[in-house]
Each structure stands twice: as C-alpha cells, then as structure tokens.
Design a protein around this nucleic acid. Sequence first.
DNA 1: ACTTAGTTTATAATCATTCTAAAACACAAA
DNA 2: TTTGTGTTTTAGAATGATTATAAACTAAGT
Lengths: 137, 137
Amino acid sequence: MKKTNILKKLRSSGLRPTKQRVEIAKFLFDREKTFHFTVESLNKLLTKKTTNKFALATIYNTVHAFKTAGHLSEVDVRGKKKTTYFDTNVKNHHHFYDTETSELIDINEDEVVFEKIPKAPNGKKIKNLEVFINLKN
Amino acid sequence: MKKTNILKKLRSSGLRPTKQRVEIAKFLFDREKTFHFTVESLNKLLTKKTTNKFALATIYNTVHAFKTAGHLSEVDVRGKKKTTYFDTNVKNHHHFYDTETSELIDINEDEVVFEKIPKAPNGKKIKNLEVFINLKN
DNA sequence: ACTTAGTTTATAATCATTCTAAAACACAAA
DNA sequence: TTTGTGTTTTAGAATGATTATAAACTAAGT
C-alpha cells in the first residue's frame, strides 16, 4: 500500500495523518497476508523496525482509532495471554487458535459451512457468528 | 444436589471440603440449568445469598480449583467486560453471547452441525471447536 | 506565521488477577 | 481429644493490561 493510499485511508476516516499514525498504518496495512497482533507485540515490532519511538498510550490510541474506523477488528478470544488480539482482516471470518503458541490463523468465511445452527433467542437477532478451532500439537 | 454429593464431589477430586468450598459448590452446582459467571459476579451473589464472607482471593482459588478438577469450564470469550467467564457446563458446547447484556447462553453441541470445516494446519491437530453466536437486539 | 482543535506523551489511575506470608483449619495419628 | 502437619483462607501487596489525565506538541486552516 502506497503512502498516498495510507494518507487517503486515514483522512477518509477522519483521522489526521500524524507521523505516528502513518508509521503504524504502514506497518500494519502494507502486507499481503492478514496480520494478528496484540498491543504489546505491535509495540515491540514497531520499536525494532522504525527509528521513531512511540508512547505505549499512542499505540493504544491508534489501534483503537483504527478499530473504530473499521480498519482493524478485535478478536474475541481469550487465550493464555490475557490480552486483546487485533486483526487486520476486517471481513467476517473465523480463526484457528494455536493453544501452544497463542497464535491466530485466519479461516476464510467460506471454509466453514453450517448444516444447522440454532435460532436466536426471542427478541434477539444474530449479529455475527465466530468459529474458533483450537489447535494442539 | 445434596450436601453429601457435594462432599463426595469435592473429596473425589482431592479437594478438602472446607466451609468455603462447600458453600460455593452448593451455590454453583445445586441448579437445574447451567450457570455462567465471572469471579466478580459470583462474589456479589455469594455475599448476598450467604451469611459467610469470602475473601476475593478465596473465590479465585476455589474457582480455579474447581476448574482444574473439571467441575467448571472457562469460556474463551472476550466481551465488553474484560474478565473471564466460567461455566458450570463442562460438556463440549457452544454459546450465544448477548452483546447488549454481556450474557452467555448455552447451545448444545448437537444444535450446531457442520457441512464443512477446514483441516488443521500441518503438524497440528484440532483440539476442540467453539462457536460463538453474537446477539444484538 | 498564528490560532485552534486534535494528538502525543509520560505518568498516574484503574481493573482484573495472582502472589505472599501469616493465621486458621482439616484431618489423621497418637 | 489433643497434637502435628500439610492445606486453605485471608488481607493486602504486587503485577499486568488498559484507560485516564493533563501538559506539550502538531496538523491544517486562516
């Protein structure tokens, strides 16, 4: 993803393209494959790969801003690490969760087909459906 | 569940039936339906319903002891409340998660049938599979 | 350049959870 | 039934993840 597209992406979602946001966005979105991370892991990776330094609060702020803008999704899994995972894949999809390595792997929506699912309880609607396939060695 | 059965349940899993454990076990397991809770909610409910007081650490200790003994399962969902849910249903099963109320509802395993699921990545095995159906109003 | 509102930053505060060490207890042996 | 020993409970401290705060900084329009 080119820099102009990064800027467009930020601006179009009402986010000022600050140095930090651009740097983080490049790191997150300039990829072929989808990317899973925690704030902690992102912080470490950014410290390694870039010359700038980022306050931890900025990583939190930015990740939340990107999530609110729809550029990131939060993965509702609670593994060993008691921390929140984020995903650059914002389409509906599912996950393998490797219980040994705490790693997430995407599963495309069409890889899972249901023959039967229950109806939502009275008064409620199904918002979305997530499948977690936990892996072991 | 009668008191003698509670005692049996505790002893058979190597847990001394202390006053606290018996009280908590009665509260958790003497039910028709399965019960979902967080340590915080359990603590509140116990404070209301019983005359004894329990240290918060005791609730944590006891819940973990029960989980290790296989009497409780941890629900791997991360909802609004950034806290761990536990479930008195220790069978394989799935959940509705009400995003408005942060409430969990059990789905029996046979309510969900797959027509297609992906294979585990190379070298890995499927440990188990959990479906979360998120609900809205 | 100047202004203003939005951002970043370091730090403090908060929340959930685990750790610690001392007091209390369960249980079995005498 | 007392005593000894290993368990358990407890209050509080410690930790880890995240959010709040308030001052310094910066983007973008005038």
